[in-house]
Amino acid sequence: MSTLKPEVSSSDHIEGSDAASITIVEFGDYQCPHCAHAYPIIKEIEQAFGDQIRFVFRHFPLQESHEFAFPAALAAEAAAMQGKFWEMHDALFENQYRLSDDLFEELAETIGLDVEQFQKAILEDAVKQKVEDDFESGVRSGVNGTPSFYVNETKFDGGPDELFEMLKESAE
């Protein structure tokens, strides 16, 4: 059974309470249709389980299959420099159907970023390194496609629907 490497830490983007008993980590790609399908289901899971769950997103852009996957991941990390990772994350999935090179700046404006700073950040090595570190962590953790989910550091063999089912059952 594959496990998460490295463990969740403060360098991750974490949504939810640190006191949560269940940590879900998703490895995803902003251009992957299956990840876009998972996006609202994760929101539902977060609503249904509230403080019991914390959600972490790591980048796993399939650059050869998806030309905008890597730039989109950079955009999310660049937004994170202004404390708006999740706003960009949500906007990217909600606008996946119209991903293009021009979209990132438009979304940056929509979510209220300083656009000039955002554009600079996209080019920074540290931003690129974060995306690559996430990818390597996925390779190490046995990611075998996107999205891949880990529940409390153990790979979950199934998609978002199965994940929701499993959580509901274990809560009963």
């Binding site: 790609d29 992957c32 249709p33 299956h34 399939l62 650059q63 050869e64 299959s65 998806h66 990818f135 390597e136 390779v139 990611v143 075998n144 496609g145 996107t146």
Partner: peptide, 16 residues
């Protein structure tokens, strides 16, 4: 018929 099937996945990982 999936994104990131086994071969596509290895393709992304060649540098490792």
């Amino acid at each position: 018929p999936v994104c990131g099937d086994q071969m596509a996945l290895y393709n992304e990982m060649l540098k490792y």
